[in-house]
Design a protein around this nucleic acid. Sequence first.
DNA 1: CATTATTGTGACCAATCATTCACAATAATG
DNA 2: CATTATTGTGAATGATTGGTCACAATAATG
Lengths: 196, 196
Amino acid sequence: MSEKKSTHIRQEEIVQAALKVIGQKGVGALTIATIAEAADMTESNIYRHFGGKQDIYFALAKFIGNAVMGKAAAIAAGSRKPWEKLETIFFSHITLVLKNPGIPRFIFSEDIRLGNKKLAEKISLRLNNYIDTLAGIIEAGIAEGDFRQGISPRESAKTLLGIIQSTSLSWAMDGKSFNIKTEAEKIWRNYLTLMR
Amino acid sequence: MSEKKSTHIRQEEIVQAALKVIGQKGVGALTIATIAEAADMTESNIYRHFGGKQDIYFALAKFIGNAVMGKAAAIAAGSRKPWEKLETIFFSHITLVLKNPGIPRFIFSEDIRLGNKKLAEKISLRLNNYIDTLAGIIEAGIAEGDFRQGISPRESAKTLLGIIQSTSLSWAMDGKSFNIKTEAEKIWRNYLTLMR
DNA sequence: CATTATTGTGACCAATCATTCACAATAATG
DNA sequence: CATTATTGTGAATGATTGGTCACAATAATG
């Protein structure tokens, strides 16, 4: 029998194991069995710490949301120039995805987005938060002269998020075949050119 | 017993039924049973016309690829101004997605992209084709003065594709809750502003 | 019109999945 | 140390899924 740990600990382990499974084999491979294997525990023990698969989804969404938004909000609250903030957020997001390929896969997974309305709403809300944050920075950037006049902060923010998402998702879906960092650098440089 | 039709016809019906199922309930709901129901035939009859589910995936990819790329290539070959070509491609893509919400869901589905290497490569190739086409138009646009100097055609094309993809995918994943056309118009206008 | 090829169908099967449960081991409590 | 609460586990279960098969109905062919 395995060591006994508190549910608190076990829940974290399970969430991390789940994210690992998604990163390695995709959401489609996220079964109780594969999670159990990755977390080195029995399937039935997972039910000791989570009500069911849906609860694990919620915990995953919470973890990812905190990881992504927490960082972005911290950078946004800093005192650097707007364009530097944007750049830092951009690359920290890419780095996070690089370390956790499961993130984009999870966020854009149908199982999650279409299978559970409450969860879909939560993710949707988080994404809007993210856009708001980016738009705020861009607005400040226009005022300070980092970016040019006449552009829409909100649409420019959506464009940036679109770049981040399509880059991460393509990378995660293509089996991580290309170097996401170099790819990100090229597209960021061009975005910055477009913006000013 | 149902009317007898040639496999040729049946295959088309099955592909359309499958795309319909995905548009209504997602790739996760794409089972032989739901396809059979949507196509109004028995499950076993589907195996009469397709070797298996994977073959249906391939047929779907072919159909979608033709629908998306065919239109884009035709527009690109036309004689309008580059920025008009880009705009027409953009909105025709959005319109296509509006009519077939299954398209973005299918393209970014894990079941497809991670479950079948050959299929993933085919889709990847198509997407690169699409980027090439857009990049070609943008390059011409820079030469003709539609767009400004100093921007990268390829990265700008990726940015546009990113916009298209994230808009369509968000819309399809959010249960089609917002008006994709108005959303697309706003973001297109801003993209054009950024580009010139 | 008789024969053959093609298409349609219900019954069936093995695999996979999420979940439950009775029971065992360990930790916490008084 | 005795009792109780918590955590771990193997076996079992019902539902769903992709796929097969023998057989039936229809169309094509000579």
